[in-house]
């Protein structure tokens, strides 16, 4: 499949990434090459084969819904750019 510049920009937008002009050209070329290779999956004889869902066969793994308090709040917040009164601070969401 041919990837257009517009498609790439659309995907970058969905991925929340800004691309510079030189990056766009570079990624267009790479993406095309990689996707052309990835299309080899279409030559595989998969008629009647189910999709793999999860790497092993276990399903419905349950555990008790217990609250386990995490005491070290400081350790959590130290990685945040901005915090206030024990909470992560972000810019105004609704303009």
């Amino acid at each position: 499949m041919q990837v257009s510049r517009e498609q790439l920009l659309h995907i970058a937008n969905l991925s929340r990434l800004n691309l510079k002009d030189d990056e766009i050209d570079n990624y267009l070329e790479n993406l095309q090459e990689i996707l052309t290779f990835a299309e080899k999956v279409n030559n595989a004889p998969t008629d009647g084969v189910d999709e793999t869902i999860g790497a092993n066969d276990n399903y419905n793994v349950f555990r008790k819904d217990e609250v386990i308090p995490f005491e070290d709040k400081e350790a959590l917040l130290q990685n945040a750019y901005s915090q206030e009164r024990g909470m992560f601070k972000i810019p105004k969401v609704i303009q």
Partner: peptide, 21 residues
């Protein structure tokens, strides 16, 4: 890209079948 609407079946779904294979 491979998860986006219109390409999911051609790439991702197919790849998951190849995985079983």
């Amino acid at each position: 890209y491979v998860l986006s609407s219109g390409y999911y079946d051609a790439y991702y779904k197919k790849a998951q079948k190849v995985r079983t294979l």
